[in-house]
Design a protein around this nucleic acid. Structure first.
Lengths: 131, 131, 131, 131
DNA sequence: GTGGTCTAGACCACA
DNA sequence: GTGGTCTAGACCACG
């Protein structure tokens, strides 16, 4: 399902977490959808079931999923709680780091703008009310 | 100098690396500029000197700085070597993760666009001529 | 009847057990009252009948209910058997955990006292005479 | 250090989490204090180091501690974030369950009041400002 | 059959 | 030496 790469330095469980979050944010996974079971995913991605379980635990802790023993793991309804200030700050930090790296790699402004434009299309942002 | 936060999960040396790279990418640090010595930085940031040394080692390995024995550590001239494909791919990945997180935090499209526009202004991209 | 929340980490059957015990302790349910059948409850609470059955089994094991074959499940007459030492110890432990959590959430002493005062009013304690 | 009981049904890591939270809430542990290392605790409590590590991870996730690789695990500065409504609601629920259990065990009102009064003395509540 | 807990033990990243 | 990651495998609680 996901392309997990053990050779990358990012921990496996974090790669899984990021992949699920991306799919939720783009709408490929929607509230109520069921994730594959821990054992299925473990076979699929060729990692230890504990590693999947850890990823699911983190996702649950972040409010992305809910796990029910005996039933499975499901995408939770959205309920962002961070303040506007905080979410903008966090985004700017991540964006700064991405851009700084890109500049060092020689990305041109045009390339950056194209990539951003295309990325913005793929994500499903929350409704535009301004709290 | 930099605001390093030991309580964040990102390793200290990486926070330092990212901060220097950001300053180079925005132009606050320019080729030829000298970085503080390891000891100065260690006192400044209240961090173990080994941690600073590791950050400087990584920066040099990435080609961001050059250290001249007995003279200090300096910002290197830009010389991006990655292929266009590679640099775009890396940027898209980082951007995807930043956006996915932001969406989960409830960022609206308008907020994202404003943050991006402002960030694009702050970074000094390479010249558009040489692909 | 009860507000059972499958997304909470507490097992469903325990939520049901706790709800019944609370109702008995507050007097909403009294000795001799009949509980809904397993099937009724299962439909009502949208829960697997096995889960209800397990809750009833636990309640009976704890002496809160008695089930009479063919007739149903009834609230049992009170007949606490634990020693004073034991019942106080158990209460103190639960109270400690509740208070520790509350303090971490930032509850003030005044808020705690008000909540306690109100709670004490709602519960029907045993007669003070028989130690 | 703590009295952990493997025979209780509560998971070991949760018992450890509760014990640390109680010590923080009573003031036995204060912000900045260092917890025993994972390995020390594991030897001390005769449990697997992974179990301690999990407890520490949960404590960090709840904001009770901060862990720094290479340095240790420390009590974090208090920064309760829950709203007044939420913290009172959570406390009332826990209190209700504790009282319901106690009533079933035959606790008298006098016993309850004495236990409560004594418990209230041991915990360090936040400052009394009303936000 | 689902997720959760725990153990044992190896290896790694960080300070 | 610190905490973190991952594997392997047993056992349990829940629905």
């Amino acid at each position: 399902m996901y392309d997990i790469d053990p050779s990358r330095s990012e921990p496996l469980f974090q790669q899984i977490v990021a992949a699920v979050k991306r799919d939720v944010a783009t709408g490929r996974l929607r509230p109520g959808d069921r994730l594959p079971t821990v054992r299925e995913s473990a076979l699929d991605l060729v990692v230890n079931p504990n590693t999947i379980a850890k990823a699911y635990r983190v996702l649950e802790a972040e409010g992305v999923t809910v796990s029910r023993r005996g039933a499975g793991t499901f995408i939770a309804p959205h309920r962002p709680t961070t303040s506007r200030r905080e979410r903008v700050r966090a985004f700017r930090e991540a964006l700064d780091e991405a851009l700084a790296d890109a500049v060092h790699r020689g990305l041109t402004r045009a390339e950056a703008e194209r990539a951003i434009e295309s990325a913005l299309k793929r994500f499903r942002f929350g409704s535009e009310e301004k709290p």
